[in-house]
């Protein structure tokens, strides 16, 4: 899958962010969503998971980046308060990003939270 380079970056779809919202001290969840994309569109979904204690944690986007054969989004994650040195590096497991989720790993199996965003640019 490849994305077109340098589109006019329209955010045409912003999905509800899911996971633990520290500002509201609540877990936010929404039903899976899906929508079509066309050229010159950009979609963003934000996600958070409460605790990651080991490698191989699957994190759902709460959104289905689907339709029009757009492939999968690019994904960026950090510790829930930004990068977290205690938890070590957080990284995406090789080729684990799908239209609905990503599998995350960390260099140290330490309890902590991770959050981030998935973005698709057409």
């Amino acid at each position: 899958m490849s994305f077109k380079n340098y589109t006019k970056g329209k955010i045409r779809k912003v999905y509800s962010f899911v996971g633990y919202d520290r500002s509201r001290s609540a877990v936010i969840s929404v039903p899976p969503q899906s929508s079509s994309f066309v050229d010159d569109e950009m979609g963003i979904s934000g996600t958070t998971t409460d605790i990651i204690t080991a490698n191989g944690v699957s994190l759902s986007f709460g959104t289905v980046f689907s339709a029009n054969s757009v492939g999968v989004p690019i994904a960026f994650y950090t510790g829930a308060d930004g990068p977290d040195q205690t938890n070590g590096n957080i990284y995406v497991q090789a080729d684990s990003v799908t239209q609905t989720a990503v599998v995350l790993s960390q260099s140290a199996a330490t309890a902590g939270s991770v959050e981030g965003v998935a973005i698709i640019i057409l």
């Binding site: 899958m1 490849s2 994305f3 077109k4 380079n5 340098y6 589109t7 006019k8 970056g9 329209k10 955010i11 950009m42 690019i74 990003v97 973005i119 640019i121």
Partner: peptide, 30 residues
Amino acid sequence: YIIVASGTKEAMVAGGSKTITFDLTHQPKF
């Protein structure tokens, strides 16, 4: 907002350093 963005997944090369060149020919607005 005005947002101009690009992104993709790239393969890292031997040596651990890779040069990314924007595709300004096809998308010059950036």
